Amino acid sequence: MRIGVPKEIKDQEFRVGLSPASVSALVAQGHPVVVETQAGAGAGFGDELYQQAGAEIAGEAATAWAQDLVVKVKEPLPAEYDFLRQDLLLFTYLHLAAQPDLVKALLAAGTTAIAYEMVELNDGRLPLLHPMSVIAGRLAVQFGSHFLQRQSGGRGVLLGGIPGVKPAQVVILGGGVVGTEAARMAVGLGAQVTIIELNLDRLYALGDLFGFRVQLLHSNSTHIAEMVPQADLLIGAVLLPGRRTPTLVPETLVKQMIPGSVIIDVAVDQGGCVATLRPTTHTEPVYTKYGVLHYGVPNMPGAVPWTATQALNQSIFPYLLDLAERGRDALAPGTPLGRGVNTQGGKLIPAVLQELFSG
């Protein structure tokens, strides 16, 4: 199967669908790979590395998109909709719950689109979402610490404090992969950390992991209303696979937050869990509302493309190779890849998306 790797065009998205190592492995299995020129430059992978790996370098995006299987990182943007077609297999992050225009484009084109974030193992784990969730959780604290600095518009709080001066209060909504990794970073820097999580079994697991270093609260409106106004850094880390994220923090609570505090919502690409937060970009990552800095970059791992590209490739490669070897036969219902199919033959496949877009 011929595989295409176009250059990402989302604002400051420097990741690339395939690393040279992945290209080399695919070519060795007899699958030609076409990489758009400079597609990997932002991640530190020049065209010469892809050529050495056996790839053909294409001078324009259309050539990469013309292959049987296109491997990307982020969802197609409107400028790429004309590349969609019925015989195309598209393998990338999609997050369609918050992308109605993309849904229409994929259905109109009849494209078979497989979403990384919905490839699911039998035990419920999401293996292709996991590495980016780890990175996003860690970056949320790095970015939060940066924007808490006065020169960045924040209230001038050192995350870990110093002896005699209390540390920052970090409140994390959600105790999954993103929330856990954010807590690791925040605890490591000496912050006072609270995780608010709905699943009781997960709360107990977090208790085993963090002990008394993290305050663990069950997610309900009372605990959220109590902790959000105290937060110097509020991190949204809520995930409902395939669904829009519920709004847990209403506008009234944001108004009660300390001026110069920071909100970072990692789930913004699924709609976000904070009423006042909207998507931003790496070029303009924050805006201020009610005196609170809001950070809503939906492609946070794009800030560390060298790390993120390799981490993503390590996870997707076995599934990608299966898709390249067997084509649509690898997409049988009930298999991990089959669960990741979002659109096929002009139809929405997952029930959660059918329900969301039925109107």
Rank of each mutant, 00 (worst) to 15 (best):
A205W: 00
V171M: 11
P250Q: 02
G188D: 00
V228E: 07
L217C: 13
F210D: 04
R202M: 02
T252E: 15
A231H: 09
H218R: 14
I196V: 15
R244T: 13
V249K: 09
L234G: 09
S219N: 14
P246S: 09
V268E: 02
H218A: 13
G176F: 03
I263L: 08
G175V: 06
L248I: 01
V249M: 01
D269E: 13
G211P: 03
N220L: 02
G174F: 02
I258Y: 05
L198F: 03
L209K: 09
G242R: 10
Q270P: 03
Q270D: 05
H223G: 02
L203M: 14
V254N: 06
L198V: 14
N199P: 03
T247A: 09
V262P: 11
Q192R: 13
L173F: 06
L239Q: 07
L216W: 04
Q169W: 00
V171R: 12
V187Q: 05
N220S: 04
N220D: 15
V170W: 08
D232C: 06
H223C: 01
H218N: 12
V268N: 03
A225Y: 07
M257Q: 09
T222Q: 15
L253M: 04
H218L: 12
T245S: 14
G260L: 09
T194M: 05
V171F: 06
I235K: 12
H218S: 14
L209D: 00
A237P: 09
Y204M: 11
L198T: 13
L239A: 05
V228C: 05
T252G: 04
R202L: 01
L189M: 13
I258G: 06
E197C: 03
T194Q: 07
G174W: 06
L200K: 10
G176V: 08
L203H: 00
L206K: 01
V214K: 07
G207A: 08
T194E: 07
Q192G: 03
T194S: 14
G271Q: 09
Q270A: 10
G175R: 09
